[in-house]
Structure formats: structure tokens, C-alpha cells
């Protein structure tokens, strides 16, 4: 569900000008994609509270993945949402307000490692089998299930890579795709810091 983006208020424009910032009049803040990492109490219902918050507060929710962390009492959620900085800040504060959340972090695009898993089933013939295997090799995809008519690939990588792999396979007649959504973490070290 697309969240409605509010333009800068008159006051904000006045203030920004007073602070010497350049303001394009009426220019809406550009929304961008944010990856939010949430550490959550690992008990039933906690995930519901987080997901519920997005629909109740009219925020966009592109993908959610959840799994247990190094601490079995804690699960880790990776949420992908898009919106203006201000709107996402509001999401972070509302998430933080929940009692089940232990930490909430907006992962900056250049400071995160992320992976997505994709399973893709495709019909093949003698004619295109070799080409399919070539593409799979380029993307380091593995065959995890095979029958005389179908093959199932597993591919892992950043979302863009998974998108590209699915795009390459599409002309060959995809039968089924299942994707995990993103799993992300902050980078431990950024070179050049």
C-alpha cells in the first residue's frame, strides 16, 4: 500500500531558509528504500505487533524476514520499506516504542550486507538445457531438484542479483518462483572510515 508523502510544510521551508539551506519550493522529499533491522523478543505475537504497526499507521511494507539470532530468546527481523527520511524516522520511533523490540536500526545502503535466497523452477528441453546451465553458472546458482522436464535452481545474493537471475530465466518459461525477502546486517567494518 503506497504511503502518502507529505510535502515540506511552510514552516519547514521558512526554517530551512533561515538556516541558510537551499530549498526548492514545493519540492517533495524524495522517498527511497530503507532496510530496517529489528531485534525482537522471540515469543509468539511479537512479530504480529510489528507487522500490525505498518498497516495501522499506513506505512509501506515491502518485505519482512524473521529468524532466530545467536540468542534463542531474540529474533531478528529485516524489514524493507520505502518512504521519505521523515516518514521512516517516524516508523523507527514507533517501532522503538513497542515493548517487544529490543533494538531498531535503519541500515544505510552503503553500510549493510544483505542477501536474498530464491528458488526458481523452470521447464527445459534438450535444446536449452546447456544455455540454462551456463546462466546458472554465471550467477553461481545450484540445481537442487531435477526431473526429465524441470529443474529447480537455488540462487543467493543481493536482491539486484536475484532480480537479474530471474530476468535471465524468464524467456525460458519460469514455472514457479519463491523468494525469501532480504536478510541484512550492518557491516562490521567499512574501508576508508
Amino acid at each position: 500500500m503506497p504511503a502518502t508523502e507529505r510535502k515540506l510544510t511552510q514552516q519547514q521551508i521558512l526554517r530551512m531558509k533561515a538556516n541558510g539551506e537551499t530549498v526548492l519550493h514545493d519540492a517533495p522529499e524524495t522517498p527511497r528504500r530503507h532496510v530496517i533491522s529489528v531485534r525482537l523478543e522471540n515469543h509468539v505475537g511479537a512479530l504480529n505487533r510489528v507487522v500490525n504497526l505498518f498497516s495501522a499507521r499506513n506505512f509501506n511494507l515491502e518485505s519482512v524476514t524473521v529468524g532466530v539470532t545467536e540468542d534463542p530468546e531474540v529474533s531478528c527481523l529485516t524489514i524493507v520499506t520505502s518512504g521519505t527520511r521523515r516518514r521512516v524516522k517516524q516508523v523507527l520511533r514507533l517501532l522503538d516504542r513497542l515493548l517487544d523490540t529490543l533494538s531498531v536500526e535503519d541500515l544505510a545502503p552503503d553500510r549493510l550486507v544483505e542477501r536474498e535466497l530464491c528458488l526458481l523452477r523452470i521447464g527445459y528441453t534438450k535444446g536449452n538445457r546447456a544455455e540454462l546451465m551456463d546462466v546458472a553458472d554465471i550467477f553461481r546458482a545450484r540445481v537442487i531438484d531435477v526431473t526429465p522436464e524441470t529443474m529447480t535452481f537455488e540462487v543467493t545474493g543481493p536482491t539486484a542479483k536475484v532480480n537479474a537471475f530471474v530476468g535471465m530465466m524468464r524467456p525460458h518459461g519460469i514455472l514457479e518462483v519463491a523468494r525469501s525477502g532480504r536478510v541484512a546486517m550492518r557491516r562490521a567494518l567499512v574501508y576508508g572510515d
Partner: peptide, 28 residues
Amino acid sequence: KLEAWAPHARVIHIEIDPSCVSKNVYAD
């Protein structure tokens, strides 16, 4: 109408709930 509210004012917001700050009106 938010755009026309308190046009000459800067804002101090004293608040217990962080999710209320700069939600509707920007707090200087």
C-alpha cells in the same frame, strides 16, 4: 491547515514520547 500554522514561529517541543516529535510540525 499545517502549512499555514504559526508561520513566524520556531518550535520548542517538550515531549515524553519520541514518536510525537516532528510528526506533524517540525521541532527546531
